[in-house]
Write a protein that binds this DNA or RNA. Structure first.
Length: 697
DNA sequence: TAGCCTCGAGTTCT
DNA sequence: CTCGAGGCTA
């Protein structure tokens, strides 16, 4: 940008530059701190360029705190250590996950202050514990002079040039020009900024950029960016900042309470989180902890807990410090949703269909409320994409959902002697880890499979467990430990063998007393009476799950017509295409399968000739699709499903615009949210019950 | 033929 | 719960 038009006088230029700086600072504040832009981006750019031009024309006008210095700036050679005038202490962390952490703190504070039983509750300032990195900003005469990382608390690193490029950090304090005001706060990245940044990075990598990489999480991104040596790079990254305290202060009166200090920081133009409160006593702390905990996922940024501080400065002074931790503050963490741990091994599991699934064996970590030691890697492609190797340090997450997942590898921590990229076939030497059969991968498929079929004990075990599961023949008491013994001892090979078990044989097994043996035999006897749909599902035909089994049962009415049917005939069943039809046909052509089925029938497995007569087409909810979510008080999900089927409706697993009703129980999650987004009719449990009772929806 | 929808299969921990 | 893939529909 060049200065255009008639050359302005030096004097007028100086006045204009000052004016522009003030204006740009104000816009920055509105935009980055208040989140409420005053002018359009184009107008902002215009002013910004005008200032740049003036400074280019009159270099003597250039001041270190000019907004233009936030984007250019020179590349630093290395990091300069900075000794903090007042040490940056760490706050004690309550590790427990219950709200009792708050009560413990309150009790301790009251004891230290020697408060009597009936004394009024202590007042606390509550705020968020941001998941970022702590920074000390030193303002002298109201101007930002130095920014440093926390380091070991005594000495940090100088990151002034980088921090100057962060627009949320004001270069000048509003209304305060005291000789020294040090502001402490947290530098972090918002979740949406993080997502956007990674999207850009992925695009760069896709277009062939060599040195680019995606960031693992917002915290790592923020830390990496601040310690980056080139401020111009930092300037391009979206970092945010919240102030939460003070360091050295000279010539300015510190307010009498922490909450008032935060208000004062806010008034100086520093961003201060609005998620803060003044609470009274343990009750107030617990309420704050819970209210933030409930909204944790909806915050724009990651937090790892909340912080409680005794509000009155006078009381803080009385409480003082233990070693290097203040007695007047405590961090109360939420269970971490992410943790890092080490990959001890990559095991490969064999599923019922022979699918080979790599599973990361992890050094146990406490994540999201439980200890995690395994995490699926899904398949070879996924493992390679994430480049997970034995010995790597990985980030494990248990967000909203239940199942742990390996998010990414922390490459900086990869040991030099780490192994090769994951290669499933090579690791297994081309053979099934259980039965040594050859393994293969179908074209265009992500999965390797064991070709051993039922010869493979792993597949046999899974087949038996599938047969016995609740939604199949429901054989109570037949769990994996028992199946292991039965198969390894070659007592049972096929589901039909289960019905040939006798009490004497069972008593030979470990951990099997008379009582358990009799219970199992009773469960087996009970399971003989079933339905065709359950039986078809229990067989474990590839591509035939519960829904398809039901459709087949309804269409064919009995097993024999289905066994006799050709592939084309099977394909006439709705939702069955060529692949599924062929799979079913092949299954029944297999001699071994026919034998097992025959034996099962001989041993008394039976079902009513025709499955439950289909609800008439004019049934009140014929062909209506229901989705169940959350926990119902009055019945199990299975029972609810039965009721819907009886009405002539059907139950689906996911919400789409074709869904007619979503039944929301307690703690309904994403499905409810989706239903609301799509405008799908949502029924409460009470409304659902009324509907079952025959009332109109 | 693309894109949506649904189903199947696999997974974790208490 | 999620992902991949099979089936259906516009």
């Amino acid at each position: 940008m060049s200065a255009k038009g008639t050359p302005v006088s030096r004097e007028r230029a100086g006045a204009r530059a000052t004016e522009l700086r003030a204006q740009i600072e104000r816009y920055n504040h509105r935009y980055y701190v208040l989140d409420d832009p005053e002018v359009t981006d184009a107008e902002y750019d215009r002013l910004f360029r005008e200032l740049q031009a003036l400074e280019a024309q009159y270099p003597e006008l250039l001041t270190p705190d000019s907004p233009t210095q936030r984007v250019s700036g020179s590349v630093q050679e290395g990091r300069i250590p900075v000794r903090h005038a007042v040490p940056m202490l760490s706050i004690r962390t309550e590790t427990d996950t219950e709200s009792s952490g708050a009560a413990t703190f309150d009790t301790r504070v009251r004891r230290e202050l020697a408060l009597r039983e009936g004394a009024p509750p202590v007042e606390y300032a509550c705020e968020l514990k941001f998941d970022g990195l702590a920074i000390n900003l030193r303002y002298e005469g109201g101007e930002l002079r130095q920014a440093a990382t926390r380091g070991d608390g005594e000495t940090g690193e100088d990151v002034t040039a980088n921090i100057r490029t962060i627009k949320a950090v004001p270069a000048r304090l509003r209304g305060v020009s005291a000789p020294v005001v040090e502001v402490r706060g947290e530098l972090f990245m918002r979740r949406d900024d993080f997502e956007k940044l990674n999207e850009q990075q992925r695009a760069l990598i896709a277009s062939g950029a060599k040195h680019e990489k995606t960031f693992v999480n917002p915290r790592n991104a923020a830390a990496g960016i601040v310690r980056q040596l080139d401020p111009a790079m930092t300037a391009k990254r979206p970092l945010s900042f919240f102030a939460y305290g003070l360091g050295e202060v000279r010539g300015w009166t510190i307010p009498a309470t922490h909450s008032a200090t935060l208000d004062a920081l806010d008034a100086m133009g520093l961003p201060v989180s609005q998620e803060r409160a003044v609470a009274a006593g343990a009750h107030g702390l617990i309420a704050f902890h819970q209210s933030i905990g409930a909204r944790r996922d909806t915050l724009a940024f990651d937090i790892d807990g909340v912080v409680y501080k005794v509000n009155a400065l006078a009381l803080q002074k009385r409480l003082g410090f233990v070693t290097r931790e203040p007695r007047w503050a405590v961090a109360h963490k939420y269970p971490a949703q992410e943790q890092t741990t080490e990959v001890v091994a990559i095991d490969i599991q064999v599923g019922r269909t022979g699918r080979l699934t790599p599973v990361a064996k992890l050094k146990p970590v406490f994540v999201g409320g439980t200890t995690v030691s395994n995490a699926t890697l899904h398949n070879e492609g996924e493992t390679r994409r994430k480049d997970v190797r034995v010995g790597d340090t990985v980030i494990v997450r248990r967000a909203g959902d239940v199942i742990p997942e390996v998010v990414a590898v922390v490459l900086e921590k990869r040991p030099p002697q780490v192994g090769e990229p994951f290669d499933l076939a090579q690791q297994l030497d081309g053979r099934c880890p259980v039965c040594s059969s050859r393994i293969e991968r179908e074209e265009d498929s992500a999965d390797w499979r064991c070709t051993g079929g039922l010869f493979c004990p792993a597949q046999r075990k899974q087949t038996l467990l599938h047969f016995a599961q609740r939604r199949a023949l429901d054989i109570e008491g037949l769990g994996d430990k028992l199946v292991d013994q039965l198969v390894d001892g070659e007592i049972v090979r096929t589901p039909a063998d289960l019905y040939g078990l006798g009490e004497a044989g069972l008593l030979e097994l470990e951990r099997m007393g008379e009582k358990s043996a009799r219970n199992l035999l009773a469960a087996l006897a009970k399971s003989r009476d079933t339905t065709l749909a359950r039986f078809l599902f229990a067989l474990g035909i590839r591509h035939v799950g519960e829904a398809t089994a039901r459709a087949l049962a309804e269409h064919f009415g009995d097993l024999d017509p289905l066994m006799a049917a050709g592939a084309e005939e099977i394909e006439r069943v709705s939702d069955v295409g060529p692949i599924v039809a062929a799979s079913i046909h092949r299954f029944f052509q297999e001699q071994h399968n026919r034998e097992v089925i025959e034996q099962l029938r001989q041993r008394g497995v039976r079902w009513p000739r025709a499955d439950k007569p289909a609800a008439p087409a004019d049934a009140p909810y014929a062909r209506k699709t229901f989705v169940l979510t959350g926990t119902l008080e009055s019945m199990t999900r299975e029972a609810a499903q039965e009721h819907v089927l009886a009405l002539g409706g059907k139950v689906s697993g996911s919400v789409s615009k074709k869904t007619d009703f979503v039944v929301a129980g307690a703690d309904a999650g994403s499905k409810l949210a989706k239903a609301e987004a799509l405008g799908v009719r949502v029924l409460s449990e009470r409304e659902f019950l009324a509907l079952l009772d025959g009332a109109a929806p």
